[in-house]
Design a protein around this nucleic acid. Structure first.
Lengths: 342, 342
DNA sequence: AGAATAAATGCAAACGTTTGCATTGTGGTT
DNA sequence: AACCACAATGCAAACGTTTGCATTTATTCT
């Protein structure tokens, strides 16, 4: 049973040297003799010394912690981004405090407050769907805390960003469907006020226009990004309209809702109608028919985001000015059964 | 642009009072006049003061942070547990540092080191599949850091724990399959050296024995908990043996591998053979046939775990002794198409 | 040998809070 | 008018590091 944590002072006392030397020895300072370093290391181990990074952070004015805010951690995409972020940040000596905004701007503000209070070295954020006003983020910048946005970004903020080329992913997918000979594609997606869905819509629009199809004449449903919302939509839609040739859901979950609705009405996919989703959720290749979708390389996005943050933090340390960078990752079309008409 | 962070000293100077008063005012200390409190709050806002919880932690000797170690964050189960944990811990004023062990005991040790270095107020852990030796966890206890184990627990450690009643879940599921009239059930699962799979096996065994079936005569495959490992197994198995009546995979991913292997060999589920999984992954109700499985109430597990930790931390603060508690959550059988023979 | 240089260590302040104890101020009681 | 009690605030130390500068010790050069 350990009553009191051992500190570098204890080690110093034990060896009849000062705390400064111990500190430097433990941090491998060049001016410390090799023999003392070894001696210090040994006694540190003997006394079961555990460094106190809280104290170090306070003194150094910066923490070895990085904050990350995502809408939801239990979304496959985000948890993979987190994995990617950690794979870069941990080796660099940082650890992550993860917060969930739960798609609420109020929670987002609170999250930022606790991250700032914890004096994190930097912040990674994918903003909530509700977030339009960016004052709380400007505050972070004003506080000189390096900020990197990813996935759900905003061009109004002058920071480094990593985005998916949703326009291109959506364009490729739409083109692929058009090549199957269809002349109409119903669009289903989240609110276009979010950059993500705006871009996905634009890619779709572009492909349609290139094929000489008027996008204004296409049916377009915008709603919550959930299976149920899409299921409700398609049930209602089928009651009043004839079966469309194809449906492009800008989210795999919505695609799943569409598929369930179509199947319960007795329609065969892809024979009667083509369906595609977006983001390659794990279930996309497990369902029947296997879902054509777009893969977003989520882990790589995490790695890229973390790398940008490391750069920013370094720049800030060196106190040099530095242009912010915007990295765009190209997603990959994954063609599966749901769009392969026999 | 803010050059230097404003501190309580700045506020004090601004109001011609001392930092102590400011500190107490901000923490709503009863001995501070209401009028001063308001004054302090106002100037704090005016000077854009952001509390430094690093400094507070150092002084108070404990952080407002809690560490959590999970094997993998991008597993549906764990990310939901995390959500549950946060829903309890955040309102209580704590935030989470999340670490991934990636199923490696070495990484687990490192994670613990950084958590201790960050002087977290407590630690939540679900140990890696590799972890048998528990010395690193005993060290945590010796350091007086409250520790709560969840899901993958060990009885060798005297700490509070939250577990799923895997025996019961597995028993219920097996019994359900037996009620369909089958006389043999192939078992597929992870290594039984892990408490989880040992328990799931025991529940299965118990149900078989009660039905008068010798569990020793059943086929049993133990391997990595992945789709591919199960797929490989079933392919090989089908080559050399006749089709079994039912297969119980103690993991939904493995069940998915089994289903794919069976389907590619032309077998119909549930008509030719029954299949069930475990843990109710999101895809379980999306695939065809919909998968019978066991739901584990992952968010609730998170909440229960966090609550136990809060209790432990409080007890430690009050310096009273306290018996460790083991909470067992009863999982729920989810019957779907894959075990419903027509 | 003495001076000059280099190498290793020590000194002390600082980071921003919190907190036990001391002090001041205010009003009430005798 | 002296005293007491209580409310409100101040004082100063402490938490465990890090780090610029000063100091000591060892080494090299003339």
């Amino acid at each position: 049973m350990i009553r009191k944590q051992t500190t570098i002072q204890d080690i110093a006392q034990h060896l009849n040297i000062t705390a400064s030397t111990v500190s430097r020895a433990l941090n491998d300072h060049p001016k410390i003799k090799k023999s003392t370093k070894e001696l210090v290391q040994q006694t540190a181990k003997k006394l079961n010394y555990q460094p106190n990074s809280i104290a170090a952070s306070l003194r150094k004015g910066r923490a070895t912690t990085v904050g990350m805010i995502v809408p939801r951690i239990n979304r496959h995409f985000f948890s993979n981004v987190i994995t990617g972020v950690e794979s870069v940040l941990n080796p660099a000596g940082f650890n992550l405090i993860i917060c969930q905004s739960e798609e609420s701007i109020e929670k987002e503000k609170e999250n930022l407050k606790t991250l700032i209070a914890n004096r994190v070295g930097g912040i990674l954020i994918s903003i909530s769907i509700e977030t339009k006003n960016l004052k709380h983020l400007e505050k972070v910048i004003a506080h000189q805390i390096p900020l990197v946005m990813f996935d759900r970004i905003s061009d109004k903020l002058d920071v480094s960003k990593v985005e998916n080329d949703d326009v291109s992913g959506s364009y490729d997918l739409t083109k692929h469907i058009l090549e199957k000979g269809v002349k109409e594609i119903v669009w289903v997606g989240g609110p276009r006020s979010s950059s993500i869905y705006k871009n996905r819509y634009n890619g779709y629009k572009k492909a349609l226009n290139e094929a000489g199809i008027d996008h204004e004449k296409q049916v377009c449903f915008e709603g919550p990004i959930t299976l149920d919302s899409a299921l409700d939509f398609i049930r209602l839609y089928l009651k009043k309209n004839k079966l469309p040739e194809a449906i492009f859901a800008a989210s795999d979950y919505m695609a799943m809702g569409i598929i369930q609705g179509l199947q319960e009405a007795g329609h065969k996919i892809p024979d009667d109608i083509l369906v595609a989703g977006y983001s390659n959720e794990p279930f996309a290749e497990l369902i029947s028919p296997k879902l054509t979708t777009v893969d977003q390389f989520s882990e790589e996005m995490g790695r890229a985001t973390a790398q940008l943050l490391l750069d920013e933090m370094e720049t800030k340390n060196a106190n040099t000015t530095h242009n912010h960078i915007k990295t765009t990752l190209k997603p990959k079309l994954i063609i599966r059964e749901s769009t392969q008409k026999k």
